[in-house]
């Protein structure tokens, strides 16, 4: 299938359609040492918000701010406990309106 026919929006404008009330406190932490040893890196592909990005030195850069709070990252994480994940503090994080 070709995706040319539909003018697909950029990832940035896709994410700008979502409201995030960003907390000062990160609700995701990533153990970079474990990531460096990880060969599968499912989080990079599966996170719907694209919050996990590989770095040139073999690590993973992550960002907690525009998170859907779905839990996919820790669920597909192959390295035991590399991703620690909890809910953001009350009243913060993603806020849906038309879903």
């Amino acid at each position: 299938m070709s995706t040319d026919a539909y003018p697909e929006i950029s990832f940035e404008s896709r994410m700008s359609s979502v409201e995030f009330r960003v907390s000062e406190q990160a609700h995701i932490t990533v153990d970079g040492k474990k990531c460096a040893d990880c060969s599968t890196r499912g989080c990079i592909t599966a996170c719907p918000a694209n919050l996990f990005v590989p770095t040139a030195d073999g690590g993973i850069l992550f960002n907690y701010e525009l998170c859907f709070e779905c839990g996919t990252c820790y669920m597909v994480c192959n390295e035991e406990g590399a991703i620690t994940w909890s809910y953001p503090e009350g009243g913060h994080g993603v806020v849906f309106h038309s879903s």
Partner: peptide, 12 residues
């Protein structure tokens, strides 16, 4: 066709 993305969402 012609629609505008109003909200993107995800959930497990």
């Amino acid at each position: 066709e012609g629609g505008e993305v109003k909200e993107y969402s995800a959930h497990m």
